[in-house]
Design a protein around this nucleic acid. Sequence first.
RNA 1: GGCCCGUUCGUCUAUCGGUUAGGACACCAGGUUUUCAACCUGGUAAGAGGGGUUCGACUCCCCUACGGGCUGCCA
Length: 464
Amino acid sequence: MPTRPVVTRFAPSPTGYLHIGGARTALFNWLYARGRGGRFLLRIEDTDRERSTPAATAAILRGLAWLGLDWDGEVVSQYARKDRHAAVAHQMVARGSAYKCFSTQEEIAATRAASDASYAMFQSPWRDVDPALHPDLPYVIRMRAPREGETVIEDQVQGRVVIRNDTLDDMICLRSDGNPTYMLAVVVDDHDMEVSHVIRGDDHLNNAARQTMVYRAMGWEVPVWAHIPLIHGPDGKKLSKRHGAVGVEEYQVMGYPAAGMRNYLTRLGWAHGDAEIFTSDQAMQMFDLAGIGRAPARLDFKKLENTSGQHIAMANDAALLHEIEAYLVAAGRPALTIPQLDLLSRALYCVKDRAKTLPELLEKAEFCLVSRPIRPDAAAEVVLDPVSRDMLRTLTPQLQSVRWTKPEIELILTACAAANGVGFGKLAAPLRAALAGRSATPSVYDMMLVIGQDETIARLRDAA
RNA sequence: GGCCCGUUCGUCUAUCGGUUAGGACACCAGGUUUUCAACCUGGUAAGAGGGGUUCGACUCCCCUACGGGCUGCCA
């Protein structure tokens, strides 16, 4: 295998959001390059002018940025390189490895219809026509693909794949409007960008054979191929809208931290022994093409949540706070005030290891984010049942008419318990049953500590 | 239709001819715990089917079934 600098790339077509599968492909390329001191490039495949949109490109860039997948150099627009592609196409014609075809789409369709085998490949009647006899009409440039022999793809994931040349037709390289097709553009760009490793979805495995022909025709070095299986939905079917979240930004809105997302996606369809939870730096060191599985992997939200939770727990507090702020923006939720941020940062130690997602973390930190003093009309509140109310009355008669948040009630009950020498669990049980949701919260002690209930704590200590 | 790829616990996977087929998530049971979460212990659970090759096959070969992809002037 030739040794040249490692250069990988991610080359999405801007027709929508950044697909979760595309994100994983980008991640693999990024890990491979970054782990080997190579370069990771980004190219937008926008040769299809009908469907490419600037908004889609922006969404893709946003998605990559959120996942922390940084690329080297400028974003390359494939469309902007159309002249170069056309030049190569004509160069191939000059070399005899491609030819001008004047058949129109209607003619091709008619030929197919007249044929017995409706699946028959189209064989252009212009393949061997003397150029001197060419009409002055619009034409496409087709590859003069070899009809004998076979093309071999040495794939790092799928192994050695042999494709008979007679099963490949003369693909179009240059459209009749002078624009290149994907099949030509991708090869020219990868060559010009000095891409050494093409890591992409296995839906391109067959294409690799045709693209190899272009490399050969131009005398260019063929890159190392690695065709990775696509991601499927939980039901094993191809991932689609009906599976719910397909775009990466949806995952950001659901509150998964980028590091957890990266870890999960890396581990989805790739393994390195028993390694499960790792940082991106560790992933870069471990990542290799040999560890990529050959079968499509299914998305498993349970495992994603677990991985996500472990990353939240191991996150650096400052970084986590920033991530939370970014999450709130992405989710369209109100930003936290400075005092709230301050309180939250103090509460992190007792809430971050018990949340699977960012919104869940916020929910468990509700006790320190709610505005104080708690007012009867506060949004997050509960109405006490008679038994619980009675309990509260034993210590603080003036509390009867006030409605409290759940954590607040537990706080009060703790003081209550301390005063009566009764265990909190015993006293709180009936009340807890009456509380809707039974949402998990940090320990009362931690909550009081965070919100500065030092006096209450002191009283508890005395009682104990 | 043709060609190509794939198939180990429910899920992600380890194994690269010889293992009681391992780990993780999920699940179940028990423990710990002043709540929840966390944590600890244990448990259920897998080589699609059929032929070969071999002393020996999850590992190699063939067939079948199932799943996926390509077969576009889409990428």
